[in-house]
Design a protein around this nucleic acid. Structure first.
Length: 164
DNA sequence: AAGGTAGGCAACCGCGGTCTA
DNA sequence: CTAGACCGCGGTTGCCTACCT
């Protein structure tokens, strides 16, 4: 099956983004900022949906997006957080600066899924955060911050600040 | 060299939450 | 309070490419 290049209803373009489209979107956002994803493509001269533009920006064009493979550390963080949070990719991505939820999701499905032994983790998908989920999320985030802080400032006395 | 296949990843889709008039 | 618009998230699809036969 071939993915349609244009939506018949709306006439909007679909599929892979060209370098020209990327440039138009980046130039527009650099100039005017993000104000309304639905309206922006029209003014930026793009025949794309707002959703498509947002996705492209968030996953590829936004400054600070890291390219290339995930490091060992990042991989471990994903595994740990997935154990705690399940498939809350955006929450996991928040702990990995420069990595997007889409990237992490893809990475999980292609590399890490095989290693998973706990099927109950899958049951957490789409579950709204309860108090316990929230507490476990914050404790996990603190653990990641702690880890990164100690790597940046490897002084024995500083670690005391984090130990309760 | 050519065709088949599987893995990796970009992008789309639909749903639910939030905001605003 | 309610309805519609917008946004963000997770699931899924399909293209591309490297590898195998």
């Amino acid at each position: 099956m071939v993915r349609a290049q244009f939506c018949k209803k709306t006439g909007l373009k679909k599929g892979t983004w060209s370098p020209e489209e990327d440039k138009k979107l980046v130039d527009y956002i650099n100039k005017y900022g993000i104000w309304n994803w639905s309206e922006m493509p029209k003014y930026a001269g793009l025949r794309r949906s707002g959703k498509s533009c947002r996705l492209r920006w968030m996953n590829h064009l936004k400054p600070g997006i890291k390219r290339g493979n995930l490091t060992r550390d990042e991989e471990e963080t994903i595994i740990k957080m997935h154990e705690k949070l399940g498939k809350r990719w955006s929450a996991i991505a928040a702990a990995l600066p420069g990595r997007t939820d889409n990237k992490i999701k893809n990475y999980w499905h292609t590399h890490l899924k095989k290693r998973q032994h706990k099927p109950e983790a899958q049951l957490q998908a789409r579950v709204r955060p309860s108090i316990m989920n929230y507490l476990s999320w914050t404790s996990c985030l603190l653990a990641v911050l702690h880890h990164n802080f100690l790597r940046a400032f490897p002084h024995p006395h500083l670690s005391i600040l984090f130990l309760g």
